[in-house]
Amino acid sequence: MAKEHYTHERLDEQVVFHVHGVTKTYQMGEVQVHALRGVDLDLYRGEFTVLLGASGSGKSTLLNILGGLDTPSEGHVLYGERDLTRASEAELTEYRRYHVGFVFQFYNLIPSLTARENVAVVTEISRAPMQPEEALQLVGLAERMDHFPAQLSGGEQQRVAIARAIAKKPDVLLCDEPTGALDSATGIVVLEALQRVNEELGTSTVVITHNAAIAQMANRVIHLADGKISEVHTNKTRLQPAQLSW
């Protein structure tokens, strides 16, 4: 019954991801870890989704599978018509290259490239990207484009990472604890950037966090616990990032 509830709620909207019966077990030394134990989920175009859960709940594993970094043990993940579970390494690379934008908890900028070049490193291999300058403008970093990562604060670095993720105009933006390494004031600036991208470009955005406060700015919040979806709710009213506090 639960499955019906999660997947058919917004039939009017176009499905981006169709996740069906996904499990993931992996070997951790001599212990088998069941990271996901049967997840069914649809994600829709333009939606801002927060995946909420404690550490070990399986949210990162799910995000990695959506992003084509990992494959499930069982089940299927459809991205549009494409079955990610059957894709080859080269197809997954192509998928990440043209369709997905990633934002990491620790930014993962290339230290030897300036902010502008960190964005360009992605736009140079994309089809019809925006200009790196434009992407940086969008996250409010037009002034610091020629700085190297070592010259930027954590929040600035994360905004460069967001600019880098959106500059290729991806279909989906996947963010793994984007504010995890930042203080709350800086985190809010980063969240504002994410929201702006979601609204202005209409990019489907999935943010995973263990910070419940962030859930209040989402269209939809999916709770994960012990490798399963425990609850899904839609926010009737979304809060602006500035209204959040933690």
Partner: peptide
């Protein structure tokens, strides 16, 4: 390692 893995995540092929 980290830098290169990040680029792989961003869609760079192994050759790139």
């Amino acid at each position: 390692n980290r830098e290169l893995a990040s680029l792989r995540v961003l869609g760079f092929s192994r050759g790139e």
